[in-house]
Design a protein around this nucleic acid. Sequence first.
DNA 1: TTGTATGCGTTATCAG
DNA 2: CTGATAACGCATACAA
Lengths: 342, 342
Amino acid sequence: MPTVTGHPERHAPTLEAVAEAAGVSRATVSRVVNGSPSVRGAVVEAVQKAIADLGYVPNRAARSLASSRTHSIALLVPEDVSRFFGDPYFASFTGGLDRRLADTEYVLNLVVARDDPGRKAVRYVRGGNVDGAIVVSHHRGHDFLRQLEGSVPIVYGGRPDVALSAEPVFVDVDNEAGGHLATRHLIESGRTRIATIAGPEDMPAALDRLAGFRRALREAGLPDDAVVHANFTASGGAEAMRTLLSRHSDLDAVFSASDLMASGALTALASRGVDVPGDVAIVGYDDSPAATWGEIGLTTVRQPSELMGATAVDVLLRLLAGDADVPHENIVQTELVIRDSA
Amino acid sequence: MPTVTGHPERHAPTLEAVAEAAGVSRATVSRVVNGSPSVRGAVVEAVQKAIADLGYVPNRAARSLASSRTHSIALLVPEDVSRFFGDPYFASFTGGLDRRLADTEYVLNLVVARDDPGRKAVRYVRGGNVDGAIVVSHHRGHDFLRQLEGSVPIVYGGRPDVALSAEPVFVDVDNEAGGHLATRHLIESGRTRIATIAGPEDMPAALDRLAGFRRALREAGLPDDAVVHANFTASGGAEAMRTLLSRHSDLDAVFSASDLMASGALTALASRGVDVPGDVAIVGYDDSPAATWGEIGLTTVRQPSELMGATAVDVLLRLLAGDADVPHENIVQTELVIRDSA
DNA sequence: TTGTATGCGTTATCAG
DNA sequence: CTGATAACGCATACAA
């Protein structure tokens, strides 16, 4: 059995060693490492050379102990990880987080509050283990998030639907504008009888998209009464589509509030022999993988999820830097991705 | 900043404070916290009470500095995070990791080695920032992984296809058995002319599944010559299906090495008016969301990805505990999920 | 079984 | 601009 636990590592070089090699004191090396402006140029160079020669890497624990800053931030996920990452939107959001974080010396800690009602996670965050936190995939009723207030700076992915005592800082997408964008595209391509498969009535994002849909139609002087709600699933979308067809035989376009529902709608249309986009045009929402898995590419509204992740980091970093006037609402815009269906 | 319910921020209590409250020394408190067996029962209780009263939480940095163990492990992802988490398999794997880790005091650090050829990530892992690492989604050519050897215990998700100087510890799924399982199911349901849409010829997992397919057919005395390779995409699967149909008109079943390819095959069959599973039965692989998105549920081979994540943690924990004889190969078995298509 | 003393590697507060 | 020197909170040999 090969040795697995052996540490052939010498003693990792410390500030002390670098100081000696550079002929200065520990304090000076520390200053150079932390980019203090008050060090003579020549000394800086000498120290940096010593650092490079010895391959010095600051000890995180020691640094953290002395400065009481951890240089790590929590990605707090209040639900099952598989579900969270299984959602392409969050996968992409996390990608944005990471990419933006790569330029910094911050590290991402994955903190999950699944079974325990947030106790362990709250203790972790409050326990001084991280400098800040980004909370994602939070839902109404996640009241334990309140216990995070007053500990470290927090940025929410999506406007939190929780009773917080202070105004939360969040990044969100402009769903109303997204719904408007999609519907406007249908209008501009000459459609006149446009329906929507809306999302659940208790989800703010869904309602906002619906509002955007309605506004676009009103602005164009078209009727906005063809609305059916579904539950963001493919089968729900299929059923909604059938309902719409039976109610509005003159239908020539549909805005679906999610790609998954749109894919269900597409199969429903196909089985009825309705040509897409010939007879009926359809625009989805999300630009999820489902948008390109079918035979005909789905024209859809992309949420800049990666940008949102990056933005969340930006905002948090500003908060950590003590920036007093960071905006609480950070709204990013959607974008239309045109494929075959509309 | 509004006052938060609970502890008024003050100075977080330290060992010192607990010691004083319990009327013992810091060392004793430390022993209790770390579960040392050599502390009198009465004292243990007293200390634990003090801990509870004061809401004491050990300072990670101090602990780490003193013990040179970090209690955190790295999840090393050598590629784009979005792609990694966008894959349901990895999302689920990570879920397994997390769930198993929840019982411990270890924390997961997300370490990504995307653009930089591993330099930063390697430095991080070697820099003593983590006690161990779990490496996932590694590909051939990721030679920088070699630089991790000898630093901390490492467990790979999937057998690494990299020239390592020591025998790597990994968890993997038995792809050959999976291919065999799928094919055997088709045989047992009475199919006699069975083809396969295999994965890329340069991927070990794909080849293993193909080998399982062939073995099952040989064992049943059936021909194993109906093989077409595709690239694990839906469109690739559709094209492969068309090729198979043209070559083997007597086809009555197909094993597709991925659900995505199977979904493409399904659309290809549908457009030719072939009934599934009436005329042709089809079994996929992965049990990904794609398996249930279509009109007919896909019978498929599920990879116990979550179990694999949990196993990876188990193995790593044993390594960290200094367990001398942990097996290097940790193989988990696949499972057949029967739906409509076969 | 328990307490004492020391050190872990940095940062930060002073002087100089 | 630079160098001593005291924290930082905990673990752990060593003593008792």
